[in-house]
Each structure stands twice: as structure tokens, then as C-alpha cells.
Design a protein around this nucleic acid. Structure first.
Length: 492
RNA sequence: CGGGAUGUAGCGUAGCCCGGUUAUCGCGCCUGGUUUGGGACCAGGAGGUCGCAAGUUCGAAUCUUGCCAUCCCGACCA
């Protein structure tokens, strides 16, 4: 019987949890709100990370590493940023434990080891980084600084969900410093494009690029750009953000540079990040009731080979043939696992690798060898075909590409079907309740109206799409004039 | 943090209301054998702080209190 999965229809949240845990991506840990990322899930993250890292470097960035701890006085320097994150910070107050005289064998916090100044465990690193940049920047010749860091951060969330919202999570955060506003804005948009390309091209998840309203802006940013994805249950998920920080952090940390004209100017800043949350997006965008569906370009395993033995004497014959196939696949850069383990029969393995979302499965037995063919099954459509062993590697390589495209096209079609226009309040509410998805509607541009809509419907403005069509209309709630539509949705 | 639910072996569970031998069953796991084209079968075996702690009792998985964790619905958020 093995692993039973909850269906999406029965309980979408439970289905998601089942996939994460039974697909062996991650598991709950002994620490509240924190998960263990298991080897299979970590391999997926590594593939995502490696590709992003490559793209960052191609756009001129370098990696560095800054401390996990941020002295409270630095953390509070940029007020809006500090205020925004204050209520979800973990704080180190002591540096030593000692034996508890009242409870033998137990430890207690040593009251004599109180820190002079508390250390905030970074929820994001602008503060420590800008404090550092102050020492790096004197002249326009020191700019731009284009640094990225791969790190863990901690945000003490009240309610956590595997990958989507954990107290500790892995991410990258780019922090750049520029001489001019224009250059910083260009950087902000450039990195948004990098994210969009990565998410669409590698993760096969279509996104809407846009800009956040002031309400939804990152704490301390002048502008927050984002990519928004749509999940199969019709809820939106913010997949990445890129912030134009203006001179806020430069002013807070007094980071100035000398221009060519020998004038002191404040530095312009950006920051941008994506996290392990992307894995949640990946799962909810593609997977089905049989398990994960992973896009070939980032799947930890692209191909699994399952032998169908008939009697002891068939093993060496099949194994030898498979070794040749593996060699050919690897020569084309395809990752492959040969599962000839004896503790599960073929049917069990088929189900297991479907659960784990391996894009292509090859099965072969003596019968196939006689005909010089294999059975080839693709995870995305569950189609099975008999394919000649001659030229198999190339066939598989093409198929992986086709699967990548198909997964993307499917998600894109779903996303496009689920962007609907609403022109009246009734229409808006009924669409939210019956169809969910993105709703494109006019809004009067005020934070008050946005807040009111959120209170009434739980829908938020996900973004104002970039290159948005300008059209006159009236706000769905207040009826006041509006020049463009914005995208609403209920979101994760 | 507010409301609701749950917690018994790796997983899923019976028992709990009404306290009483050695905690039930299935899957999985180990050993041996037969097997292998969609979640195999036979035989033998291992595995339990009944979420944690205190209390009531001659006796607690079962009753009481506190705590912890997870899930769902809110508030908050990437």
C-alpha cells in the first residue's frame, strides 16, 4: 500500500504537507516553526541556488558573507525597517549557560552572562551590511558595490508552514550600492528580471512582474518590485522581491561618497531576495494527486531506471545494458539513478518515483532487450511509450526539454485562465469566492481603500503590473476615478 | 496570540466515555525462501517513555491540571 496521499480536492493544505513530507523534501523538527530540509529537498534547493548564483555572477555580482547577529543599535538605525521587523525578531541576550543548582543535571541561563548589548538574529541583513559598507565606500570609484549573500535568516512567525513560512529559512539577499538613483533603479529592475527569468525558465512557474503598493512595500524601501505566481488553488504567492531603497540606509548609516566634482553625496541602495519559499511555489504550481511534478531543469534526478527482472539469470544481462544507457545519458549531462534495489518490486518503485516527481522513468526487462527497446514514462502526462535503445539518450534529452515546456505551458494556461476582470464590487466579491485567482480591477489608489478591501475580502493588491495598460475606469469599491487596473488576489 | 481539532511503534489505527492480566490490527522494518511488466507471497522475528510533567488512586493509555507539538480558521508575514 505504501504512502497514501491526500487529494487536492479533499484538503489542499494537507495535500501540500503530504507532498513535502512523503516526497522527502523536508520534515518537521524538534524546533518550533523550523524544518529539516532532507537530502532530496536540499538537492532541489542546491540546483535552484546554483542556477541563480550563476545568473547573479553573469550580471556582475559577487558573493560575501555577513554575521548572523546584528547589534540592536545597528538594527534600529533605519527606523522603518526596524519597526517593520521588530515584532518578529529573535534576540540573543546572554552568552553562557551554567549548571542549575536547583535542578541537578539541568542547565540554566547564567544571569551574570548578560550581554551589554542585545544581538538581533538577522531577519534580513540591510543593517549589518550598510554599517559595513560605510567602511568600504569613500569615492565614486568604490561604486557600485554588487554583493550577494547566501544565508539563513530568522523571522519569528506566529504560524508556520513547511517551505512557505518557516521561522528559519534559507535565502539569498543581494545588497547593492550605487552612485545614482537611476543606476539603483535599473539594478532593482534588472534583478527582478533575473528572478522572473529564473522562475519561469527553470522552475516553469509563470509570474507577473509588478510593483507593490505602498501598503505592501518592504519596510525601509522606496519601491518594492515583485514577481507574483498563482497556485493551483487560486491563491497568489509572492515568489521574489527586489527593492529600491533610495538613500534611506545610506542616511541611516551615514554612507556618503565623494563625486568626481568633489562633493559628498549619499549612496543609493537596492536589496533583493528569494528564499526556500520558492520550493513551496514549485510544489503548488505543478504537482498532482500522485505527488510532486518537478521541472527537469532543476529536478534533483531527471531520470530513474527501473529493471524488470525475470529470474536470477536476467539480472546481469539487464544490469549490463543499463550501465551502457546510464553512460550515454550522463554524457549528455542528464542525471540518472538506477534503482535495482531488491526490497521493492517495480510497481512500488513506479509509484515512489512518481511521488518524488522524477520527470522521466525508464523501465526495461528481458522482453524489451529482445526488441532493443525500453518503456519510457513521463511524469507530467503519465504517458508511456516504447522507445528504441538506439539513440535513447538523445530521445530522453529532447523529452526532458519537452516536459519542461509542457509544465510551463500548462501552468501558464492555468494562470492566464485565472486572471479575470471585475468591474463592479459584486463581480469582484463573487469572482473571489467562486473562482479565486487574480482579479484585475480598478482601484482609486489610496491606502485606505486597499485596506478596506483587504478587511472585507482578505484579498490584497498583489501588484501593479509593469507595462500596465492605461485605461480610465472607476474604483470597484469607492467608484472614484482610476487610470489603470491592479491585480488583486488572496495570497499565501 | 484568539477560536476549533488532534497527539498510542517509522506510518495509519483499536482501546479512552465506564481506570484492572502481557496495549489491538494493518502497512513498513529485520532474517530466510519464492518472486519481479503498476504499490508481491510464505515462514519466523524485532520494535512502545500510550506527546511531556505533575496530581487523584492499591492500580492511569483511560480521570484532573499544566505544558509542548501539529493541523484547520483568524490576526501577522517572504
Amino acid at each position: 500500500m505504501g504512502k497514501e496521499l491526500t487529494t487536492r480536492e479533499a484538503d489542499y493544505s494537507q495535500w501540500y504537507n503530504d507532498l513535502v513530507i512523503k516526497g522527502e523534501l523536508a520534515d518537521y523538527s524538534a524546533v518550533r516553526g523550523c524544518m529539516v530540509i532532507k537530502p532530496y529537498g536540499y538537492a532541489l534547493w542546491e540546483n535552484m541556488r546554483d542556477q541563480l548564483d550563476k545568473m547573479f555572477k553573469e550580471t556582475g555580482h559577487v558573493n560575501a558573507y555577513f554575521p548572523l547577529f546584528v547589534p540592536k543599535s545597528l538594527f534600529e538605525a533605519e527606523e522603518k525597517n526596524a519597526e517593520g521587523f521588530a515584532k518578529e525578531c529573535a534576540i540573543v541576550t546572554h552568552y553562557r549557560l551554567k549548571n542549575d543548582p536547583a535542578n541537578p543535571g539541568k542547565l540554566m541561563v547564567d544571569p551574570d552572562a548578560k550581554l551589554e548589548e542585545e544581538l538581533v538574529i538577522r531577519p534580513t541583513s540591510e543593517a549589518i551590511i550598510w554599517n559595513t559598507y560605510k567602511g568600504w565606500i569613500q569615492s565614486y570609484r568604490d561604486l557600485p558595490i554588487l554583493v550577494n549573500q547566501w544565508a539563513n535568516v530568522v523571522r519569528w512567525e506566529m504560524r508556520t508552514r513547511l517551505f512557505l513560512r518557516t521561522a528559519e529559512f534559507l535565502w539569498q539577499e543581494g545588497h547593492t550600492a550605487h552612485a545614482t538613483k537611476e543606476e539603483a533603479i535599473d539594478e532593482t529592475k534588472k534583478m527582478l528580471d533575473v528572478y522572473a527569468e529564473f522562475v519561469e525558465h527553470y522552475m516553469a512557474v509563470p509570474v507577473v512582474k509588478g510593483v507593490k503598493t505602498p501598503n505592501e512595500r518592504f519596510a525601509g524601501a522606496e519601491d518594492t518590485y515583485c514577481i507574483e505566481a498563482l497556485m493551483q488553488d487560486g491563491k497568489a504567492l509572492q515568489a521574489g522581491t527586489s527593492h529600491f531603497l533610495g538613500q534611506n540606509f545610506a542616511k541611516a548609516f551615514d554612507v556618503q561618497y565623494l563625486t568626481k566634482e568633489n562633493k559628498q553625496e549619499y549612496v543609493w541602495a537596492t536589496s533583493w531576495g528569494v528564499s526556500t519559499r520558492l520550493i513551496g511555489a514549485l510544489i503548488m504550481a505543478h504537482s498532482d494527486d500522485q505527488g510532486l511534478i518537478l521541472p527537469p531543469r532543476i529536478a534533483p534526478l531527471q531520470v530513474v531506471i527501473v529493471p524488470i527482472y525475470k529470474g536470477e539469470e536476467s539480472k546481469p544481462v539487464i544490469d549490463e545494458k543499463v550501465n551502457g544507457i546510464i553512460k550515454e545519458l550522463k554524457s549528455l549531462g542528464i542525471s540518472v539513478k538506477y534503482d535495482n534495489s531488491d526490497n521493492a518490486r517495480p510497481g512500488w518503485k513506479f509509484a515512489e518515483y512518481e511521488l518524488k516527481g522524477v520527470p522521466v522513468r525508464i523501465a526495461l526487462g528481458l522482453r524489451d532487450l529482445e526488441n532493443n527497446v525500453v518503456e519510457l514514462a513521463r511524469r507530467d502526462t503519465k504517458e508511456k511509450n516504447t522507445v528504441s535503445i538506439d539513440g535513447l539518450a538523445q530521445y530522453v534529452s529532447n523529452l526532458l526539454e519537452e516536459i519542461q515546456q509542457n509544465i510551463f505551458n500548462r501552468a501558464l494556461a492555468f494562470r492566464n485562465e485565472n486572471i479575470r476582470e471585475a468591474n463592479t464590487w459584486d463581480e469582484f466579491v463573487s469572482l473571489l469566492d467562486t473562482k479565486a485567482g487574480f482579479i484585475s480591477a480598478h482601484w482609486d489608489g489610496t491606502p485606505e481603500t486597499e485596506e478596506k478591501i483587504k478587511e472585507m475580502t482578505k484579498a490584497t493588491i498583489r501588484c501593479i503590473p509593469l507595462n500596465n495598460k492605461q485605461e480610465n475606469g472607476s474604483c470597484i469599491l469607492t467608484g472614484k476615478p482610476s487610470k489603470e487596473r491592479v491585480l488583486f488576489a488572496r495570497a499565501y
